[in-house]
Design a protein around this nucleic acid. Structure first.
Lengths: 161, 161
DNA sequence: AAACGATGGTCAACCCGGTTCACTATTCTC
DNA sequence: GAGAATAGTGAACCGGGTTGACCATCGTTT
């Protein structure tokens, strides 16, 4: 007697484990992680350190023509205060500049400095590199298929909840 | 004169914006967000509050048969200390139990309580609901295709960096 | 069997990125 | 012109992560 008793219970547990790994949300998470990790490494090699989720959130919601702090906060789904902190960080590191809005003396417009533009350009380049690496393994066609599916998913108008 | 001068510059910026949104890592992130947000809402409706990324990270890396703290930490890619904090939280809320490892008096084994099992079961159910909702819009076939692609991506042996 | 390095867990101090609450300055609306 | 709404800010706090120092236990090596 020993390790092979309890067959019924064990197989149930394994079945559960299997169901768990098949959840799409989880797979999306792990895939995202994979892309993120590799891109982050490559970005560091290009001299961009400490560009984390918070920094990307700001950058991602920043129009290249400049955007008001509050607008960025709304788009990112966080408070103005949170964005301000990140903006300060990015500003100190000369990735963005912050000027007051000519059309609204309350407002401040944040926009990319040349260094900031270099950063977003590097981001796009390393992203492409990662895609290429992945494409080399699972196939270019699969990748383009994936892109299309994700795209249609994001454009889909889902019911409210 | 006015808003339509600078055509060249504007179109370049728009082009940049377009390239930016086509990055797969970004799409993965947004899709993940979409699944996560909907699942979180449904989970709350079932009475599970404050189950965030940290809590999921623990739960996700917990075998149903019980797992040592350090093992969970390694799997999750964070320090033992971080996992301990989350474990305390989940323990206070009766989702997990923590007993000392019979095979190693230093170790502690964390495993699911009945409430914990209910949680992971609810997670799988709401995940399925979300998948159904998405499938209703983009098609069941697309979803299964997506699942398969993500799966092969995760199983792919990518070059080191 | 003793000794010693490696391992599992814990405490404390700290950091970062988020929150809420309270507030000022400006703009919008009527 | 008064009053509501909005943009930004400061301060206090919290959650979840880190590093560093430490103890208890285990495994291995003499």
């Amino acid at each position: 007697m020993g390790r092979n008793m309890n067959n019924r219970k064990n197989s149930t547990l394994e079945e559960l484990e299997a169901r768990r790994t098949a959840i799409i949300g989880r797979q999306l998470f792990y895939c995202f992680q994979l892309f993120l990790d590799r891109a982050t490494i490559k970005l560091q090699r290009r001299g961009h350190e400490n560009i984390g989720m918070a920094q990307s959130a700001l950058l991602r919601n920043l129009d290249f023509s400049g955007t008001q702090l509050t607008t960025i906060a709304k788009r990112a789904g966080v408070t103005k205060q949170a964005i301000i902190k990140i903006a300060r960080d990015l500003h100190e590191r000369r990735y963005i500049k912050i000027v007051s809005d000519p059309n609204d003396r309350r407002g401040k417009i944040v926009s990319l400095t040349p260094k900031g533009f270099r950063l977003v350009n590097d981001v796009m380049e390393v992203a492409a590199e990662v895609e290429d690496e992945v494409a080399a393994v699972i196939g270019r066609k699969e990748i383009e298929n994936l892109r299309a599916t994700l795209d249609s998913l994001l454009k889909a108008a889902l019911p409210p909840a």
